[in-house]
């Protein structure tokens, strides 16, 4: 029953999935999939000297700033306090804080993006399952001579288990709008922190 699966598929394909870049099937977001945030995109300060992990106070501040639990409004105060106590190496150490913050945010962002891709693969698998189930249901109906089911609603009524999978699919598709925003939110955070650090150089 190709017609039935086509109908169901139409009902299943969410706009977010349909609107994704065609070149990247695992990427369901309307936003472009981009690599890690480049240092140069947000930083006009000096090059880092040394590893940020080796400066305990700088590393602690970087962890605090990178954490989404720290409200962005508090960043300025935390950075000012650090700068006041940083001594003669202030610029060098603020640069280390920046390096640490960017590393941490980039690794969180990479995790978020990997889970978005995983999520998209899960959705595709779910869509395929619903399609298969629909085909099977339709075949069964054909063999039982129950006539033609031409609307998704009629099909769902005859096979309630299909409805459940479709509901999960729709819920996830809806959540995608929010999920797709998270890499962008992290980019905004990295930029705002870089700017606040540069102001103290």
């Amino acid at each position: 029953m190709p017609r039935l699966s086509a109908l169901l598929l139409l009902a299943l394909v969410s706009p977010a999935l349909a609107g994704g870049p065609p070149a990247d099937e695992d990427w369901p977001c309307p936003q472009r999939r981009t690599g890690a945030i480049s240092r140069a995109a947000i930083w006009a300060g000096p090059e880092a000297q040394g590893r940020w992990e080796d400066d305990d106070a700088a590393a602690a501040l970087a962890r605090k700033l990178a954490s989404r639990r720290t409200p962005i409004d508090e960043a300025g105060g935390l950075i000012a306090a650090f700068a006041n106590q940083a001594g003669a190496d202030k610029d060098k150490r603020l640069t280390l804080v920046f390096e640490g913050t960017l590393d941490l945010i980039n690794s969180e962002r990479a995790k978020v993006m990997a889970s978005i891709a995983r999520y998209a693969r899960g959705q595709k698998a779910l869509a395929a399952r619903v399609r298969d189930d629909a085909d099977k249901a339709a075949d069964a109906q054909d063999s039982q001579g129950q006539g033609d089911i031409t609307t998704p609603e009629a099909l769902e009524k005859a096979h309630p288990e299909l409805k459940w999978d479709k509901r999960i699919f729709d819920d996830r598709a809806q959540a995608l709008t929010y999920v797709c925003e998270s890499p962008v939110l992290l980019e905004k955070r990295a930029f705002a922190l870089a700017r606040a650090l540069q102001e103290k150089l």
Partner: peptide, 9 residues
């Protein structure tokens, strides 16, 4: 060619 940036940025 902004140093340090990828072409897509």
């Amino acid at each position: 060619d902004v140093p340090g940036l990828t072409a897509e940025e």
